[in-house]
């Protein structure tokens, strides 16, 4: 089903059929407490977003709705504004106009405080071991950090054998997996993932897909910019058209 929005952005709906839908319980099940984010989030809505970067309009009158329980995959050519959109939704970038609102969720927290953001960097310290890196994020992001959670996250991303290794000696893909394991050590309903499959191999990409499916099955919301098909159970793609950027002056 394809349709055009007022903004001229094409929204495609696609259900990937490569993997069967995620069914619990799995080893990830203990991480996802069904009542982890009370009140549950309903949807994230962006209305008529306009975002400028360096004098150029990157996002022009863009509207999107992401519903809890689904993964919204942002696609589009390089420079289409995927990173800009993710950072704007997380509240890092100011918008020129338009509105972002989260329905449901904890009204006392801003969107960023309810979100995991995985950007191009992995937020991994080379002088700490893999386990220490995760333990730090668990204690820093979560009020009740647990060792079991860290262990499950390490195991899920295949890092349990390397947990006492300084992260400096990990390969690029292993560092990426350590960066992604952060998603599992603290419970946050929103996941913003920017090119999460960067330098991941086929098996790790699948582990990531399993984690995303477990999160959406539990009522979480994932927005990911990626080019690789992840084979997700509940995914919808949102295509950002490229080469629509023009100078900010031309808009007015």
């Amino acid at each position: 089903m394809h349709r055009k929005t007022e903004a001229g952005v094409s929204i495609g709906r696609r259900h990937c059929a490569e993997l069967p839908p995620w069914k619990g319980p799995s080893r990830l099940a203990p991480l996802f407490n069904p009542r982890f984010h009370e009140p549950a989030i309903v949807k994230l809505v962006a209305e008529n977003l306009v975002v400028d970067r360096g004098g150029r309009t990157i996002l022009d009158d863009l509207s999107l709705t992401a519903v809890a329980g689904e993964a919204l995959i942002l696609t589009g050519p390089n420079g289409a504004g995927k990173t800009t959109l993710l950072r704007t939704l997380a509240g890092f970038l100011p918008q020129v106009s338009g509105r972002i609102r989260l329905e449901g969720g904890d009204a006392e927290k801003i969107i960023a405080e309810q979100a995991h953001v995985v950007g191009h960097g992995n937020a991994v310290k080379a002088n700490l071991t893999a386990r220490e890196n995760l333990q730090f994020w668990a204690a820093f992001l979560e009020t009740e950090a647990s060792a079991a959670r860290v262990k499950t996250a390490l195991t899920h991303f295949g890092l349990d054998a390397l947990d006492d290794y300084p992260a400096a000696y990990l390969s690029a893909g292993q560092k990426r997996r350590l960066g992604l394991a952060r998603l599992l050590v603290a419970e946050r309903p929103l996941w913003f993932l920017d090119e999460p499959t960067m330098s991941l191999d086929t098996a790790s990409t699948k582990w990531l897909a399993v984690a995303i499916d477990a999160h959406t099955a539990n009522g979480g919301l994932v927005i990911a910019a990626t080019h690789l098909p992840l084979g997700l159970a509940r995914a919808r793609t949102f295509d950002l058209p490229g080469s629509r950027t023009r100078s900010a002056e031309a808009r007015s």
Binding site: A90, G91, F92, K109, A112, E113, A115, H116, V117, G119, H120, G121, N122, A123, V124, K125, W137, F140, L141, G179, R182, R188
Partner: peptide, 11 residues
């Protein structure tokens, strides 16, 4: 290394 982005999501 992107740690600052994660700091911005902390409570």
């Amino acid at each position: 290394d992107g740690t600052l982005d994660v700091f911005a999501t902390a409570s």
